[in-house]
Amino acid sequence: MAVTGLILIGFLLFHAFGNFKLLIPDEGAEFNEYSHLLRRLLYPILPPMFFLWGFRIFMLAATGLHLYSAYKLTGRRWSSAGVSGRYVSQKPSTSKAHSYAARTMIWGGIIIVLFVIMHLLQFTAQVLTFGYPDGTTTLEPYDRTLAGFSEWWVVLVYAIAMLAVCVHVFHGFWSAFATLGANVSAKSQGVLKGLAVLISAALYFGFMIPPVLILFGVIGQ
């Protein structure tokens, strides 16, 4: 859970960084080039698409193991703490944000899975053609991105999904390090939780800045 979660976080940080190429005012030349390069990375040492498929399989394996661990953890939780209504009287909510994030990991995770399926159908498979006519597969990555995020509801769906990612990573980041043994003192707990805030905020803003700028017409004029 911890190792695969950190791999996924690492991927997200890089993904958000890559998306910032949308901000370069060159009509998407560098963004498209980035996308094309990914498809032929390490070519001609390896055949085209070889690296990309290797990486996809790696990410799929990390996600699969992460989901499997989540499934096992949830099963163990149900058999020890019960499925619901463990105590008749409700503990007064101490309203600690951290505890909220920690308890809703599974729900955040499920929202993220649904989102990732939608996201891949939109940008990788090009089955969901938000903002442009069905059946079109000739648009460059940059143009597909502009088309999608010129619809306000697409941006809204992304904003909600990124909130789920943000909350999930907020607990996940610190928890992963604690599981790996890095929580050595009250001070290191403070550092880890502080980093968790930074990283989850960086992911939220990192992912949301390009879509919002596209929606308001700042990008793509």
Binding site: L73, R76, S80, A178, T179, N183
Partner: peptide, 24 residues
């Protein structure tokens, strides 16, 4: 018993104040 996901409710109620660092 269930698996630990570092929520921290345990330390909150521990009459002896055993901290989460112990789990790490």
């Amino acid at each position: 018993f269930g698996g630990c996901t570092n929520i921290g409710e345990c330390s909150e109620v521990c009459p002896k104040g055993i901290p989460m660092e112990t789990i790490s």
